[in-house]
């Protein structure tokens, strides 16, 4: 049992977090000492709509097993409308990734506000477990980045 635990797959998760909500939410999770998986690497963005589809693909190229985008709840965008655009773009992008046969559970968008530290931790734990369940990213990997 203990051997199995040691060799358990630890996914790399990239979380693009909006500066005005979920990034602060992550901070809050930290100050509240709420645990969330260490697999998550946060990249701060000024708004969830700053996330270009290329960023997501590049994250997979560089070894991410899952990519999550966190923004303000619809209607609460610091820039008024940014996350509405994110919503459309990501819906279409994720659908396209699915169309190419890439696992649906590798990508996610969540709305997490600055006050939702607990929810941030929950979302990250859940997402990490989902990605853990589907295993390492093979379909969008770049072997050059995985060697050694």
């Amino acid at each position: 049992m203990s051997v199995k635990e040691k060799t358990e797959f630890q996914p790399k998760i990239v979380a693009f977090c909006c500066n005005w909500c979920s990034y602060a939410g992550a901070d809050l999770a930290g100050t509240n000492r709420t645990n969330y998986p260490a697999n998550v690497k946060i990249i701060r963005v000024p708004c969830s709509c700053r996330v270009n589809p290329i960023f997501i693909l590049r994250a997979f190229q560089r070894g991410a097993d899952g990519v999550i985008i966190c923004g303000c709840h619809p209607g609460d965008c610091h820039y008024i409308t940014g996350n509405y655009y994110t919503r459309r773009r990501m819906t279409l992008l994720f659908s396209m990734l699915d169309f190419l046969g890439i696992e649906k559970d590798r990508t996610r968008v969540e709305w997490v506000s600055a006050s939702e530290g607990g929810r941030f931790a929950e979302v990250m734990t859940e997402f990490t477990n989902d990605v853990k369940a589907i295993g390492p990213n093979r379909k969008l990997e770049d072997l050059r980045c995985k060697a050694k």
Binding site: G75, Y84, D98, D105
Partner: peptide, 17 residues
Amino acid sequence: APLTRFDAVDVEPSIVK
């Protein structure tokens, strides 16, 4: 064009799943 406008009640990306 659809990607240059939005609706407050648009579907969430989770619909893909």
